[in-house]
Write a protein that binds this DNA or RNA. Structure first.
Lengths: 420, 420
DNA sequence: CGCATTTGTTGTACGAATGAACTATTACCC
DNA sequence: GGGTAATAGTTCATTCGTACAACAAATGCG
């Protein structure tokens, strides 16, 4: 992760205390015997989970570098905890005792993703294999809604879904609530969600989900996590900027398969990068923000549609007005160059060369991509030395629900010792 | 570091292989017995190094959570390795056996910082206490210079300094070479350094420093590391954006006392963030880059001085043209608002709320700060919820030299087991 | 059918941290 | 001045987890 060996500068004792005041102060990083066990359990679990085809105990041993004997005891614990399942031994062509393939246990421990967005409420349950076990998504117009009412409805939805999977013998390891706004994950408070009309509230208790471990996060951040699963054919990039275009425009930064959140998780506000200070005034008070060019309403207006039209109307309009791409005629979407310009700033400031376009941009990509790529090639300083990649999101609808559930499961995977 | 518990998503087995193909594939993260020892050695070393006043063995034990017995053996090893020194036992008011204070060992293991910049060459040696043990800085006009000649001269300088400290019984743990350009720390190659007129070269062998471990890095990144030492009175912030203004404008990102480098370490190119697309053409081909407003030459021109004037001339000019600050008259430096605008984009994209201004900006801060702060307050979305802080760099002249030496010492501190 | 081969398990050895007991050295109080 | 409490540092048996080697299990192949 750190290509400058020896430049990383993390402070052991002192920061560990300041980062989370809630943890007990006894030995934040002291490594004991059981630390070894925890770490190696995680290592073995990841080896089982993050490999294209099942490994045997011996395979895990050679993949991790641990001794076969050690792997055996660790795997036995994971199997006993229900996190790993043994498939029937397969006698595969080769000589020797047949190997027992190990796979993530389906439908045992599951994660719950929750989301309130402008036009829907949803709850989705994923198991350790990444399959959707259960979900409910309810459309609704939630701008300027009452958080108490909406969150109670979402809580009922969550209980419904959650009770269902619990009845089938699964354990819900926790939940993540995705919200379109500035959330502070340390305190669990929502500062402001402009498009919902919500501000300064503590959403988790309003869900009424009892003692289930529910944490909140920004919607774009969780959607980016969903991207890490990759598409059916294409693998997910290890590092990328995820940009989600809708009424507002949000982004998330993933480096080496890990979210980069800045100090408070309030980064990625690309919608208010200035594209042209002589441009139209933005709701944020500045002039010429990206949102004024590539936000949903601006794109609708530019296409001569009412600002609150559905995305499908814009797609239809673009499809009939020319070939599927700007090469076929006039630049179909002025948003393209503006988006490219803001992304060029982003790439120059961050050095992440893959850009994943999500939300409305996924469907609009054919009309955006050429302009974005061209502006990036012109404006990114490292462009001569780097392959810039602009691609469509793969995670499917309500990506934040999937990402939230995945985040819960990643936490399980990061500390399987808590489950044995 | 990660305020979204459970959102971090690091992949154990698979990425470890892709990140560095050079490492052997046997057990990247397998934790064995000696892993415990290494980790706890680091923990103890950091406890000794990163605490305002000396700790005793017992103090380290309570600070780290390790048992006194364990700490004793670990400290003994560090003392034997020359990384830690015992001061005379101090009988401080309190009852009980007097404690033996432990401090970083002065003048034992040292780090070497090297730098080629536009107007000087330098080598600086720091010991584990952070003191400068030895240095040589040679002014020179090095734009469009011959890398072979310049690097041979720097190599001679480095050998000179290095031989001196070695003769005094110190061990040089390694070196970092700071260069003002795009460097790839993985390969050790310099892609391009526009202001030196260098491109596509492998600088380390040209130094001729034998088998000394020399690694290269970007100048602004190393200067940012120097900031982490803090000033004489003010403590360094844990997270900040370091902006170094000179002919070009570079930046580095530090989050939780760790450099954030992006995919290749080529981030922080704030000099080419677009401030106004209707602005003057930049050398990079785009229009209205920050460098055209807040680069050294642009600032000189705006003040009516020849573009290659010295910084002192600009300061003199500003001082006599009004009071020390824009409040005293006309906006002294048009660079201020441009810098504020680019920084607002930076903060919106990254969520790091402290900005440290280095290079020429340090001296110009009185004429810049008010404009920068005002624009930031207007344009940063999270401004109502965050205290934005704009401050001057503390690290002193040739900060990259200090930062380079510190980077070497941090590597020692991160793996003291290699020295016992 | 015997042998090589690979997987998985069992038992011993070793390394590292722990906690309790012990020594060393001071302050304080009578 | 001596006893006692307090704190620092050390010694040693214990515990825990991994490594290594030997062994058992199960298969393919000649």
């Amino acid at each position: 992760m750190n290509y400058y060996p020896g430049l990383g500068y993390s402070q052991g004792v002192t920061t560990a205390g300041t980062a989370r005041e809630t943890t007990t102060r006894t030995g934040p990083g002291a490594a004991r015997q059981h630390t070894l066990r925890e770490r190696n359990l995680e290592l073995v679990a990841r080896a089982v989970y993050e490999v294209p085809e099942p490994l045997s105990r011996a395979g895990v041993a050679s993949a991790t570098g641990l001794a076969r004997a050690t792997v055996s005891t660790l795997v036995d614990q994971l199997v006993a905890a229900g996190l790993v399942r043994e498939l029937p031994a397969v006698t595969g062509g080769r000589a020797g005792r047949p190997a027992v393939p190990l796979v993530p246990a389906p439908r045992s421990v599951v994660g719950l993703g929750l989301e309130v967005n402008v036009d829907y409420l949803g709850a989705r349950v994923l198991d350790l294999t990444g399959e959707v076990v259960s979900e409910q998504v309810v459309p609704g117009a939630l701008h300027d809604s009452d958080p108490t009412v909406v969150l109670r409805r979402l809580g009922a939805l969550a209980r419904d879904v959650s009770d269902g999977v619990a009845a089938a013998g699964m354990t819900v390891a926790g939940a993540r609530l995705a919200l379109p706004g500035l959330v502070d994950p340390r305190t669990g408070l929502l500062e402001v969600a402009p498009n919902l009309g919500w501000s300064s509230l503590d959403p988790v208790p309003l869900l009424g989900l009892g003692d289930l471990d529910v944490r909140i996060a920004n919607e774009a951040k969780l959607a980016a996590l969903a991207e890490l699963a990759g598409g059916s054919d294409v693998a997910a990039p290890d590092s990328f900027i995820f940009v989600s275009g809708d009424v507002g425009i949000g982004a998330a930064i993933v480096v080496d398969r890990e979210l980069f959140l800045g100090e408070r998780g309030w980064n990625g506000e690309i919608g208010h990068v200035v594209v042209d200070p002589a441009g139209p005034r933005c709701s944020c008070g500045a002039f010429g923000c990206l949102e004024q060019y590539a936000g949903k309403e601006a794109m609708m207006r530019a296409a001569g549609l009412p600002p609150d039209s559905a995305l499908s109307a814009l797609v239809a309009c673009l499809t009939e007005s020319g070939t599927a791409g700007p090469a076929g005629g006039r630049a179909a979407l002025p948003a393209g160059r503006a988006l490219g310009s803001a992304l060029a700033d982003f790439v120059n400031l961050l050095d992440v060369s893959t850009i994943v376009l999500g939300g409305a941009y996924t469907e609009l990509l054919p009309w955006l991509r050429a302009d974005v790529v061209e502006v990036l090639a012109d404006r990114v300083l490292s462009a001569p030395f780097v392959d810039l990649d602009v691609r469509a999101a793969q995670a499917g609808p309500q990506a934040a629900l999937t990402g939230g559930a995945r985040a819960v499961l990643q936490a399980v995977l990061a500390d399987p010792a808590a489950w044995v």
